[in-house]
Design a protein around this nucleic acid. Structure first.
Lengths: 340, 340
DNA sequence: ACGGCAACTCAAAGCGCTTTGGCTAATTTC
DNA sequence: GAAATTAGCCAAAGCGCTTTGAGTTGCCGT
């Protein structure tokens, strides 16, 4: 059943039927009712391809997904996706994942935009002076960044969590507990979230007259194995930190293992605070020693990104508003006062 | 630059240009060369919306993604996606994720197919007599199932790993080591992969004149926490199993924690073999005691699904061929002979 | 020299929708 | 009561591609 047939059965023109269905004012309420009713009865649904061709609107949001043999998609992504899906489902919004060569995402961005495959894009895991943001900004397609970039000479819409605040507060708490040396096991240092977190730790230390020694920082891809290695190398140093803040739960698994391998204990020898993105499959409260965390649901962020993307598409939102969400600091058994 | 403009600059009709570009035979090689050359020079790319409207082909593959507040996307999904993306990237194939109410996926499937949003679908995590497979089969869109269903009265194309064989072999090895009682910590029992795995364990036990006691089985959503609970309840029983086979690495984390909490040891008191889907962020060799595993890369499966989907779209593949991949059995330190 | 046959090329008709620019009849305005 | 609005509807022109059906050529055999 297409528009032509429907309008034929109604004895109306395609124009009128189309307008009635799309809520245009120049059609009488009675006619509109008839049309909507008939459409429902016949199960009419406009063909999206045709609509796209006519309007240029795709009814989909896009994500350019870096891939490659050496590229791993972060498991955080599924949780983000859950949130995005939660919102999108209620709005018949689909998500298009366009796989891109991680070394050349620009081509894919250009293709996606030129083809008008999607009405809006979201960008994740931004770096400093992120080229994708500049590109997408210039291409003029609606977008939202999940995270923040720095050093761009224009504003852009984003949602991010207060990474600096979170790690500042975590570090401050450790200092209040008497720790003087805090190690940071961070994610990939080119990512802004990692930069902000480091800044937070650094600021807290400075406030206590201390400094964050580069030797106490590890920036690595966030896997269990890397967490282990980082923790070992930190803790085996001559004057090792007595406390560690760690950027992910997966890495914290490795930290816990390293502490154990070194015959140390948490929190007796080492206090540990981890960031927790809230995964269903791995919870900080179920660690051998329940983990203190800075907590923020990445799933909620996904839903919010979808919501704002939808708003931008329909013109309800514009401008470059940035949202920064506060982060919970949840205290559990993995921290204790520093040994005198 | 569209077809019309391009054909104008070439002094040819749109027909000829279109045919030349799409490799039709009724155009002279010289003309074809000229056309292709001009297209490249002008950066001409056919508008996919228009092409879709004309051909009905979307150039995308689809996945109906169950969502909802109570629904968690499995982290396995990102690895599968990595594989899918790896293949799709080289073929300019995009993936459309259509979020669906987990309680009513049918509506979404129908919409996606009726709208011709995608050329093919893939279905994951099938159950027995899976309705989605029956539906998609009936709707007549190309598809591939990742996994297998049972009890359907028609054949369908799939790719799956040999879950039964894997768990059979793992169990047999444990029996050869002298274990008489093997516990199974499985995934959701409605999923066919879990059914097959149970069958594998059961068959191996039977071959040794033993039976798989229902008390030794746990079927749960595969999280660390559930793994912990399952292991505790298994090991706290009066005559507890001396060996456990476990369906996921995340659950195995919980198993390891439970064993430790009970003051037992691996492999001294309990031997453990886990299935490993090969995640970058968590590796069995890095467990406190390196884990023996049944191993199969879910990422490779993703790439293969994409490849076969592409083949089906272009008509290179048809029929209902099923592929069953063998699974490696990798022995590491987590298993030992049973105590006499 | 003419019909037949390849080998090429083209104009035009879709695909199913939105949107522009009327048109008619009913209502309002002066 | 004539002129000006306005409400409601419509025919037709796109959107940019593919594909059908119909020519043109040029060359061959007879």
């Amino acid at each position: 059943m297409n528009l032509k047939q429907l309008s034929l059965t109604l004895g109306l023109s395609q124009t009128t039927v189309s307008r009635a269905l799309n809520g245009y004012p120049e059609v009488s309420e009675e006619t509109r009712r008839r049309v909507i009713d008939a459409a429902k009865r016949h199960g009419y649904r406009p063909n999206p391809s045709a609509r796209r061709l006519a309007t240029g609107k795709a009814g989909m949001i896009g994500y350019v997904m870096p891939t490659g043999a050496a590229v791993d998609i972060d498991p955080h992504f599924v949780e983000f996706l859950s949130g995005l899906g939660d919102y999108a489902r209620g709005h018949e919004l689909d998500l298009v994942l366009s796989p891109a060569d991680a070394a050349d995402e620009e081509t894919t961005y250009r293709r996606v935009v030129a083809n008008k495959q999607v009405d809006a894009l979201y960008i994740s895991a931004p770096r400093s002076v992120d080229k994708r943001i500049a590109l997408v900004h210039q291409l003029g397609i609606p977008f939202i960044v999940h995270g923040r970039s720095e050093g761009l000479d224009f504003d852009y819409p984003f949602i991010d969590i207060d990474n600096e605040g979170a790690f500042h507060d975590a570090t401050r708490l450790l200092l209040q507990l008497g720790h003087r040396r805090v190690g940071l096991i961070n994610g990939d240092e080119t990512q802004t979230f990692a930069i902000f977190r480091e800044r937070g730790v650094s600021r807290a230390l400075s406030a206590s007259g201390l400094t964050l020694d580069p030797r106490d920082i590890r920036s690595v891809v966030m896997t269990e194995e890397n967490g282990y290695r980082a923790a070992r190398s930190l803790l085996e140093a001559a004057d090792a930190p007595t406390a560690i803040v760690c950027s992910s739960l997966h890495m914290s698994l490795g930290v816990v293992r390293a502490v154990r391998d070194l015959n140390l204990s948490i929190p007796g020898d080492v206090s540990l605070i981890s960031h927790d993105d809230v995964f269903p499959w791995l919870k900080p409260e179920n660690f051998p020693v329940p983990l203190s965390t800075t907590r923020s649901s990445i799933r909620a962020a996904g839903a919010r990104v979808a919501e704002r993307l939808a708003a931008r598409i329909s013109g309800l939102e514009d401008g470059a508003r940035g949202e920064v969400w506060p982060v919970d600091l949840v205290v559990r058994g993995s921290i204790a006062g520093a040994r005198p």
